[in-house]
Each structure stands twice: as C-alpha cells, then as structure tokens.
C-alpha cells in the first residue's frame, strides 16, 4: 500500500475525528448543565451543512459568510427549542430529555428528507482553499488542512473558554450547583439557554466544515449520531479535554482501519466501545455517577 493512501486516510480520519470531537464536546456541555443527552445533536450537524448550502443556493451567500451565519442560525434554532420545549423536561427523568430530543431529531431529519430526498447536494470549496500541496509523502488538499486547523482551534478554544474564563467558571459552577449560582445574581436559565445554543452551534459548525468534503445529505446527522454516542460512551462525560481527545483518537483509528481492513472500518469504534466498557464502565475520562 502506498504512503499516500495511508496518509490520505489518516487525514480523513483526523477530519472525522475532529467532527466527532466537536459534536461530543457540544453534547458534554449540554449534558453538564441540563443533564440531557441531546439526541438532536446529529440533526444540528446536518442543519449546519444544509443552511450553508441553502444560503448559497437561494441567496448566493458564500462559504465564509456561511461559516459564521450557519452556526449562528443553528444556535438560534437550538435556543428557541430549548426555551419552548426542552426546558419543560428538566425536572423529569433524564430519559425523557433523550426521548424528546430524539423526537426533535426525527422531525428535523424527516422534513429535510421530505424536501430534498436522500441523495446528497454538492457544496463547493471556497476558491481560496482549492488546490493543495505536495508534501512529498502525501498530497495535502488545502481545504482538508483548513478543516483540521479550524476544528482544532474551535475545540481548544471551547476548552479554554470553559476552563479559563469567567463565563466558563459560571458554567462549571452552574453544572455543580445551579441554585447557588442563581443566588449570586447570575441568570442561570439564560446561561443554560446560551450553553445549549453554544453546544449545538459546535455541531452546526462541524456541519459547515463537512459540507464541501461530504455531500450535504439529510441523513448525514443520523449516521454521525450513533458514532458520536459511542465516542461519548468511550470518553465518558467527565471532562472537556477528554471529549476532544477521544473524538480525535477514534477518528484517526477509524482512518487507520480503512487502510488496513476497510470492511471493519465502520465497526472499529464500536469494538473500542465494547472493550472500554468491559474494562472501565464509566468511560476513559468519566466519573461513575
């Protein structure tokens, strides 16, 4: 096998891994504050890609503007859903949150399948990121390099914002004891809405980044959701950094298996999940709850 193929697959694995990382990072933030596993996370990923595609298709708005607008739109949609529907299940068993967001997932995905069918829509690279560089051992397409860099920046930016800033301190404190944080004069319900918006915006952003690599397909959210769930089970919900590392590592591992044993590439993450569950049921970075 050629080194080019190997590194190409590894790069693609790294890209997928950064999408897993962004989605599971968003899930972890939302889970921390709302104690809800947001099953609609996959739908928000798909929405990010589709909004970018629609902005171009219907309004002629290009990639760079969509890079900002699409995650923002996803965040707004998410926050509206949080305010109107999801908020109502906070005091119920956590499974109801999962079921409710699963319902929302079905609605969102179902509407797009109904309107656009299940065949993908192409979305072009931005001009400035076409082409690539020959690194000697592999050909590096510029856009793919950009995706890796951009997602790493956003992942670690999110980590920094949560661990090192004042807003992040509010978030961590509210995860522990929301009532007391309110008693200090902080509007926690608003914080929760914003965190939900931020968490789904990460998925939306991953969707925009993914749009030119994969086609924009209404089913893309469902496909990634199960994998991301497996990533979350492997990593546990304990730490932000854990979510990022697990996502990236499993993506790369998946890339590797595509080179050596392509038939099993879909299975490898689930296999890892099973092994981890047998050894460390709470996940690699998780705390037993």
């Amino acid at each position: 096998m050629s080194a080019t193929a190997l590194f190409g697959q590894l790069l693609l694995g790294l890209i997928n891994g950064s999408f897993y990382a962004m989605l599971s990072l968003g899930l972890a933030i939302i889970f921390g504050l709302l104690a809800i596993v947001n099953a609609a996370q996959g739908a928000f990923y798909m929405l990010g890609a589709f909004i970018a595609w629609m902005l171009f298709q219907y309004l002629g708005i290009g990639y760079w503007a969509s890079f900002v607008l699409a995650p923002l739109a996803v965040a707004i949609i998410g926050m509206i859903l949080e305010r109107t529907l999801i908020r109502r299940v906070y005091n119920l068993d956590h499974l109801y949150g999962l079921l409710l967001t699963l319902g929302l997932f079905q609605i969102i995905q179902g509407m797009f399948v109904h309107w656009y069918g299940t065949s993908g829509q192409p979305y072009d690279y931005p001009d400035i990121l076409t082409g690539g560089h020959n690194l000697g051992f592999m050909f590096l397409p510029t856009y793919r390099a950009w995706v890796v860099v951009a997602s790493l920046i956003f992942c670690f930016g999110t980590w920094y914002a949560i661990e090192k800033t004042r807003l992040g301190a509010y978030l961590r404190a509210a995860t522990e004891n929301p009532t007391l944080v309110r008693a200090f004069g902080i509007n926690v319900p608003m914080l929760v809405t914003l965190a939900f918006g931020g968490g789904v915006a990460l998925a939306g952003l991953a969707g925009v980044l993914a749009a030119p690599i994969y086609q924009v397909n209404p089913l893309m959210g469902g496909n990634i959701l199960t994998t991301v769930f497996a990533v979350v089970v492997v990593g546990g919900f304990g730490s932000i950094l854990g979510a990022i590392v697990t996502g990236l590592a499993l993506g790369v591992l998946e890339g590797f298996s595509k080179v050596f044993y392509p038939e099993a590439s879909n299975m490898v993450i689930f296999a890892v999940m099973i092994v981890v569950l047998m050894i460390k049921p709470a996940g690699l970075f998780g705390r037993e709850r």
Binding site: R166, A169, Y170, R172, A173, T175, E176, N177, V181, F184, G185, I186
Partner: peptide, 13 residues
Amino acid sequence: FASLNVTENLMLP
C-alpha cells in the same frame, strides 16, 4: 464549588 479553585470561587459572584 469543587471544580473551581479558591481564586475562581472567590471571583465567581
């Protein structure tokens, strides 16, 4: 808050 250090706890409110 267990996950915040002393300074962060102090500066939180």
